[in-house]
Amino acid sequence: MRPFPRLADRSFPLAMGTLAIAAFALLVLPLATVAWVSFFEGKIISFPPSGYTLDWYRAAWEMPRFRDGLQTSLRVGLVATAVSLATGVPAALFLARTRFPGRAAIQSVLLGPLIVPGIVAGVALYMFMIETEIATGLQTAQTFGGLCLGHSLIALPWTVRLVTAQLVGMDRQAEEAAAVMGARPLTVFWRVTLPAIRPGLVAGGLFSFVISFVDLEKSLFLVGPGTTTLPIAIINYLEWSVDPTIAAVATAQIAVISAVMIVTDRFFKLTRAF
């Protein structure tokens, strides 16, 4: 039945192992390459490099488009995080604690921004903003406020998901005890519920920030003069040239995200977030 048992036995782990290594290489290679190239001496990327330098980081910082892009991205990220938490936490509380027929429908609506493709949602929001402006004179397209609206929207499902998961897994006895002892509902919420779901809150907030910070598809339609985000500045530059300067900018973005993720991981294991 098994003509070459030894061969067969070894070919399976060998093939699976090789493919798994190829998969992880595909994930890590581009990031490692970007970081490596950002230190190359020559302006034209060639391998192996003639030498190494830190000059490109200074050059990138001196280009207003990247410095402004970084600032815009950080500011939008903070606003999106705040809005996502302020609207998402009450919604999560509702989803985790209520049983009524419309609950599933509300949940699908709130997770909608995760399901509708970024380009479709982006073009729709852009046209809606222009139409609103024509109707009311209120300018939102290509403004900081409009950008924040779009980013809050894509951050919201992450807060809702992570905080709901934390609430569902929470032991409610402490809340009941506090209520029995005479704490008013709002006191129970501030002093018992919120501290108990802190890991979910921190993870929801930090994920909101990261999702906003790296967003491309939504921002494409929402950025304007003076409100260009860092990823948009990166891809605009890439249409003209690939050089160590852009690698330095990309490496800076990698550094920002890594820092946020290291903080996140201390409160909420990243591997549990998906």
């Binding site: 491309l216 890439l238 690939v242 973005q253």
Partner: peptide
């Protein structure tokens, strides 16, 4: 190794593939 690249965003990873 699987999650971290996901959160880095497409722009950065596309730079990497262009260089590669």
């Amino acid at each position: 190794l699987a999650i971290v690249p996901l959160l880095m965003g497409n722009a950065v990873r596309v730079v990497g593939w262009m260089v590669l």
